[in-house]
Amino acid sequence: MPSFDVVSEVDMQELRNAVGQTRREVENRYDFKGSAANVEQSEAELTLFGDSEFQVDQVMDILTQKMAKRGIDVSCLESGKLEEGGGKARRTVTIRQGIDQDMGKKIIRLVKDSKLKVQASIQGEKVRITGKKRDDLQDVIALLRKAELDLPLQYDNFRD
């Protein structure tokens, strides 16, 4: 029976590359010379540094451009509050991965409401869609792409 998984993942190697490119551009830009502007990555968390809120926002813009060029969906970024003190500013940005229970239930509800002859089930941080016809599964993919979910989705493990 054909099936596929709906997942939300970020390629960590591409993210590391985007952070490295951002760091190099910040080091070379004239308007950042002599400032504390920088990006640091620890697993699925990025920390943006700067002398002011404006600089942190500029670093964020550079980072999102580099991520978009590398094929990473920037809607996976969850920006934290800006922390200012001592003439420095810092913002923590979290990389969202995986589909949580609430989003999984929302996806299942969308699929069931579409009246397509498929079954959907939550399996950890994935949603597995199973059906008898390949066309029904492709219709589900089209439905999920059209849906306004604020999480980047990928369709993985398509099997006949």
Rank of each mutant, 00 (worst) to 15 (best):
K115D: 13
V111R: 11
K133P: 01
R96K: 13
R70T: 04
V140T: 09
L82D: 11
D113A: 15
D135V: 11
E125M: 08
T94Q: 04
L116S: 07
G71K: 08
G80V: 03
T92D: 06
Q97P: 05
D136T: 13
M67S: 01
L137H: 01
G71A: 02
R128S: 09
K88R: 14
T130A: 14
L82T: 09
E83W: 05
K81F: 13
R128G: 04
I122K: 05
G98L: 07
D73M: 01
R134L: 13
V118N: 05
G98A: 07
K105Q: 15
S121H: 07
I99A: 00
D102N: 13
D139H: 12
D73N: 08
L110K: 10
K105M: 15
E83L: 12
K117S: 14
D139Y: 08
D100Y: 00
T130V: 14
E78Y: 06
G124T: 04
K115W: 08
R134G: 10
K133T: 11
R91W: 03
G71T: 05
I108Q: 14
Q138W: 12
I99G: 00
T92K: 09
G124F: 06
C76V: 04
K132L: 07
I107H: 03
R96P: 03
K126F: 02
A89K: 03
I108A: 15
A68I: 06
L77C: 05
V74A: 09
K112C: 11
Q119A: 14
K106G: 05
S114M: 10
K106Y: 10
R90M: 08
L110N: 09
L137Q: 04
Q65I: 12
S79V: 11
E84Y: 06
A120W: 07
A89N: 05
G104K: 07
E84Q: 14
M67R: 00
L137E: 03
Q65C: 09
Q119H: 12
G80D: 01
V127D: 02
V118C: 07
K133F: 11
K106C: 06
R109S: 15
Q101T: 15
D102F: 11
K126M: 09
A68C: 01
S121N: 08
L77I: 00
Q65V: 13
K112T: 13
K132Y: 08
K69D: 14
V111C: 10
M67K: 04
D100N: 12
I129S: 03
K88Y: 02
G104Y: 10
I72W: 08
K81Q: 14
A120R: 04
L77D: 03
D139L: 15
K132P: 03
Q119V: 12
R90D: 01
V74W: 06
I72T: 10
G124V: 04
S114P: 07
I129T: 01
A89F: 07
S75P: 00
V140C: 10
V93Q: 03
I95T: 07
R109Q: 15
G80I: 00
R91L: 02
I99F: 01
I107P: 02
L82P: 05
K69N: 13
A89Q: 07
L137A: 02
K81P: 12
K88C: 04
G87L: 03
V127N: 06
Q101S: 15
D113P: 10
